[in-house]
């Protein structure tokens, strides 16, 4: 497994850990109030910490273990894998934006809007990193 693939696994699991905690802990009963929005904003601090700590630790760990690989430039196959992953993530992003527009038109407040946007971003990231991991495993 290449260095970049390992880092992708770390990112994938960190995303699930950080935002999994967020969506499981969020008080959905107050989502449609101003307090719901403020709670979402406040919860981003621990979420970011939960996401970043394993991400940074994993990157440092694998860099120390394989410093040569860590310094390698992305080659043409890896660049294509990254482009394909980013392309795949475009679709959930568009769907999420439409869902948000629909929610705002139908009178849902900022709390829901923030959560829909966050879920959109997380889903897009999971699809981006997940599809890149799949392509790494498949060879291309």
């Amino acid at each position: 497994m290449s260095f970049r693939e390992k880092i992708h696994w770390v990112a994938f699991l960190s995303l699930i850990l950080g935002f999994g905690w967020y969506f499981m802990s969020y008080p959905w009963a107050v989502a449609n109030t101003r307090g719901g929005m403020l709670t979402a904003v406040w919860m981003l601090i621990p979420t970011t910490i939960i996401f970043l700590v394993p991400m940074v630790a994993g990157t440092v760990w694998f860099t120390i273990r394989t410093p040569k690989e860590a310094n390698l430039k992305e080659d043409e196959r890896e660049k294509t894998i990254h482009l394909k992953g980013t392309h795949a993530a475009y679709y959930p992003l568009v769907l999420g934006i439409w869902a948000n527009i629909f929610a705002l038109i139908n009178g849902l407040s900022y709390g829901w809007s923030v959560n829909i946007l966050m879920a959109t971003l997380v889903l897009a990231e999971l699809i981006r990193v997940g599809s890149q991991l799949y392509l790494y495993r498949r060879g291309y």
């Binding site: 080659d75 060879g139 291309y140």
Partner: peptide, 14 residues
């Protein structure tokens, strides 16, 4: 290129 890319080329995957 990386070792993994050479492996993928050898196997006809890339």
């Amino acid at each position: 290129v990386t070792r993994q890319t050479i492996a993928a080329i050898e196997q006809g995957k890339y």
